[in-house]
């Protein structure tokens, strides 16, 4: 299984070898573990990938709203690297997918423009032996919890991959003359509205493109995050994240939840 070429460090290879012999590790809670089993999967190991990335510098025009493509690329590539390394670990374990993926960014004292991008999740494998890998032949990834993973399987959809799109955008400072309109009226500022639309649409569209590449029929659980990282308040990263899903052939009947009153607090 471990014959194909990859760039994983030796210690990682060793750690994964132990996992291939039946031991599993997982950061799932007991409830999540039981629900992953309920969905017909078995956890095979905690997998992770990380990348410490130096983000370049890009000059911003004071009074112009624009995308900072260099920073966008850096943010995207760094996450992509961390994700790919995590996927490689999962592939190494013969997993069909990774659930509960968390993407984090850490900043270190020593590098002003350096940041660590981490992806951590639990690799799972279908118990019926049928491959559940995605269209690209890779293990699927998803940020779904064990509970969500089971619920999704009940709806007849299967995860294909964690998809993301990002856009780092510089929002123009206002010139002196524009600081306050003198009429005493509070008015809409169309330039700002337009800039916000553009930045978020770019992030969303990029996320959808990823989903299309996976041949997915949709994206669920989309989250929109806005972060200024360490760039100051006018430069904002707009990040869209979600799990791409496809409809499986299996017919489903959704059971109606029953009404209960909990007497617990």
């Amino acid at each position: 299984m471990s014959e194909h070429v990859n760039d994983l460090p030796e210690a990682t290879e060793h750690r994964l070898e132990e996992l291939e012999h039946g031991l599993f590790t997982s950061d799932l809670s007991v409830n999540e573990f039981l629900l992953v089993k309920e969905a017909g999967f078995h956890p095979v190991g905690l997998v992770m990938g990380s990348s410490i990335y130096h983000t370049g510098i890009q000059t911003r025009k004071w009074s112009q709203s624009q995308e900072l493509t260099k920073l966008t690329e850096a943010m995207y590539n760094a996450r992509e690297l961390a994700m790919t390394r995590m996927e490689e670990e999962a592939a190494e374990l013969g997993a069909d997918g990774v659930v509960g993926v968390r993407l984090d960014v850490n900043y270190y004292e020593w590098g002003k423009d350096a940041a660590e991008f981490i992806a951590v999740g639990t690799a799972v494998k279908a118990e019926d032996g049928v491959s559940r890998r995605n269209k690209l032949g890779k293990p699927f990834t998803s940020d779904l919890s064990g509970q969500d993973f089971w619920t999704l399987s009940q709806t007849g959809y299967a995860p294909q991959g964690l998809v993301m799109g990002t856009c780092v955008y510089h929002i123009a400072h206002r010139g002196l003359g524009q600081t306050l309109s003198s009429t005493g009226q509070n008015v809409e500022l169309p330039n700002f509205t337009q800039a916000l639309y553009e930045a978020r649409e770019l992030a969303m569209t990029r996320m959808q493109d990823e989903s299309t590449r996976l041949g997915a029929s949709g994206v669920v659980g989309v989250r929109l995050e806005e972060k200024s990282h360490q760039w100051g308040s006018h430069t904002i990263e707009f990040l869209a994240l979600g799990t791409a899903v496809t409809k499986t052939a299996e017919a489903v009947t959704l059971t109606k939840p029953m009404t209960i009153i909990s007497l617990d607090n």
């Binding site: 639309y197 553009e198 649409e201 959808q208 029929s217 949709g218 994206v219 669920v220 659980g221 989309v222």
Partner: peptide, 26 residues
């Protein structure tokens, strides 16, 4: 002032949703 709906490239079979999986199922 016009919005830019991303709908142009959305085929009927492809969707995005901000719903959690449980809400999606419901």
């Amino acid at each position: 002032m016009t919005a830019h709906p991303e709908s142009a490239d959305v085929t009927p079979s492809s969707f995005t949703s901000g719903l959690s999986v449980a809400d999606f199922a419901a």
